[in-house]
Every structure is written in C-alpha cells, then in structure tokens.
C-alpha cells in the first residue's frame, strides 16, 4: 500500500512541477525579459531584440531549477515571489 501511495504522490508532484515549469515558467520568462528590455542600456528596438533572444535561456534555466529542487512547495513560492516582484517593477517602469 505504501508503495502505491508514494507513487501517486510522486505523480502528483510531477504534474505540479510540470505546471510550475510551463505556466509559471513562461510568465516569469516574459516578465524578466520585459524587465531586461526596459533596463538594458541600448536603444529601444535593440534592447527588445536582445532580451527576446535571451528569454529562451532564462526559460531553460528555470525549468532545470524547477525539476532539480528538493521541495516543490518552496519552488512554487520562490517562483511566485520572483514573478510578482518583476511584474511590479515592469508595471512601474511602463506606467511611470
């Protein structure tokens, strides 16, 4: 029985991590890339292109982080904090 429960738990864990990697991962990638495009000391079009090119590296790194970390809950929380913070900065930069 223990074995069955642990495998169900493992599956749930995998599904949750896939969700974090895909949905949160894409949002965080976008948010960080936008922040980068606003901060890079280049002219606007160049900064946009450069950050867009780098976004794929950010995403790849993030997915590896999600699947390698010990605690799923902590991964989720940390990711959420990064997302909220970067989004807030973006909002400030774009509106102010």
């Amino acid at each position: 029985m223990d074995h069955v429960f642990s495998s169900i738990r493992a599956n749930k864990d995998v599904i949750f991590r896939v969700f974090i990697a895909v949905a949160l991962g894409y949002s965080i990638t976008m948010s960080l890339s936008i922040l980068l495009s606003l901060l890079l000391p280049l002219n606007q079009v160049d900064a946009i292109a450069a950050s867009s090119m780098l976004s794929f590296a950010i995403f790849t790194g993030f997915v590896m982080f999600v699947f390698s970390a010990k605690s799923t809950k902590r991964v989720f929380l940390h990711s959420l904090i990064v997302l909220v913070l970067s989004a807030a900065f973006n909002f400030l930069f774009v509106t102010v």
Partner: peptide, 15 residues
C-alpha cells in the same frame, strides 16, 4: 530565435 517575435511577443508588446 528565428521565430522569437512569435514565441515571446510580449517583450515587444511591453514597449
């Protein structure tokens, strides 16, 4: 990168 403005359009949209 070939399709970056299709895959990650929001960087461009933000500005």
């Amino acid at each position: 990168i070939m399709f970056m403005f299709t895959y990650v359009p929001f960087v461009m949209n933000a500005s």
